[in-house]
Design a binder for these strands. Structure first.
Lengths: 236, 236
DNA sequence: TCAAAAGTGTTCCTGTTACACCCATGT
DNA sequence: ACATGGGTGTAACAGGAACACTTTTGA
């Protein structure tokens, strides 16, 4: 694809100067993790642009789907990042060079962008990230072990982490982070990973069940020692 | 000003397809009110655009200042309104006609816009709205007595109302809505107007004073019957 | 001048809910 | 050893009720 075509394509199909960035959050090994894409020697949040004929919400859902294959996910608005110096010059030069293409000042992506950021809670097992021609790899990173990232994407990730913690303290925020069927100890561990502190086990179970959000299923049959826990499912 | 100049000016100076809309909230007669501008036979939220050389936050503050003359105000992000059919065709045609100018499809404002909305709490007495060449009047409206408004601006206003009520239930949200010096009954009435329900007087006073946010001043000298109330001021 | 009414600040009380922690019981 | 879930004492909170005080108003 020639640069001029890309430029023209960008301007014709997308709202200029506006980008969507997603903090895609998964859960594994008792820790929250975040999906990042590698461009050059640094990492980037998955994201995209708003097509002229779609709403911002549709764009967000579409980006998430094309990036991860996920349909029915939990998406929540995070913040506007609108600093006057938010532009992709470095990133764009980096991967243009990698592709052997000539970097040009007026490449449409090499502009100032206002970024609308969202966070999404996903089931890692069901997530199948797709590499575009821009990025060379993807990986899940623990929130407290993030790599070097382009621009202010590290700030965005950390903002999402804080927001999720706050959200989890006043509402149920574990959507998609566990398999469809889970036990109360599972949920308890996840919740502790989200809020980042110990939570009383007995009270947690009480308050969770009191919400009425959960449907109790038969006990799991374990071989490990100890009483067999009930399984639960989110009521729809 | 010729249309072509306006078009050129818009494209040169502003980020296209991105607008800022402000829900400016004041307080009077025990009710919350909202500042609107009249264009043609309907009303509109005050707003503006983001200059290429300023951040979104700076733009928001600047818009508020040029529209109301207010400096130091309380501004809070509300939501993104990003529907695919959000365009100003009607409004723009309306006031172009009024100005005796020819309406044209490619007038830069006659585009789809993604709107970043904020709400601001202001002191009505200190607010001096400025009419631009676009709008012909301004007025304060009670939230439950809104006029017909352009586009989805009514939704925006109602969203702001809900958000403010929620905010007031967990944090102090009366910034600027009262004069610098006020009494506890004043604050109590305001708080009830915000949350939209009766609040126990004695407990309210207790919790407000317990926050330590307030500085007690000498009693006011009244002419109305009853004990003279203390005055308070927000500690800085 | 005096009593009534009305607005304000503060304390006390009571029932309820929330919270933190322990431990009995079942597998 | 692990999971469930009951119990218990404490703290926080909501909502009144009561009361003290101050000032206007009207008889």
């Amino acid at each position: 694809m020639q640069i001029k075509e890309v430029v023209a394509f960008g301007h014709r199909h997308f709202l200029p100067n506006l980008s969507i960035d997603l903090v895609i959050i998964g859960y594994g090994d008792d820790a929250l993790q975040c999906l990042l894409l590698k461009v050059g020697d640094k990492w980037l949040l998955p994201g995209g642009y708003v097509k002229r004929e779609e709403s911002v919400e549709e764009a967000t859902v579409n980006i998430l789907r094309t990036r991860t294959g996920l349909e029915d996910t939990y998406l929540k608005f995070l913040a506007v990042f609108g600093g006057k110096d938010r532009q992709f010059s470095e990133v764009s030069r980096e991967f243009m060079q990698k592709l052997g293409m000539e970097w040009s000042e007026d490449y449409w992506m090499n502009n100032r962008f206002v970024s609308l950021t969202y966070y999404s809670l996903v089931n890692k097992e069901k997530t199948h990230p797709k590499i575009s021609f821009v990025d060379e790899a993807f990986a899940w990173f623990d929130f407290d072990d993030l790599p070097e990232m382009w621009m202010d994407h590290r700030d965005i990730v950390l903002t999402a982490r804080e927001q999720l913690t706050r959200d989890a303290q006043r509402e149920y925020s574990a959507h998609n982070l566990l398999p469809e069927v889970f036990t109360m100890p599972d949920l308890h561990r996840l919740h502790q990973a989200i809020v980042g502190s110990k939570v009383d086990r007995s009270r947690f179970q009480k308050t969770m069940l009191a919400t009425g959000l959960f449907e109790r299923l038969p006990r799991v049959q374990k071989t490990t020692p100890g009483r067999n826990p009930y399984q639960y499912r989110l009521k729809k």
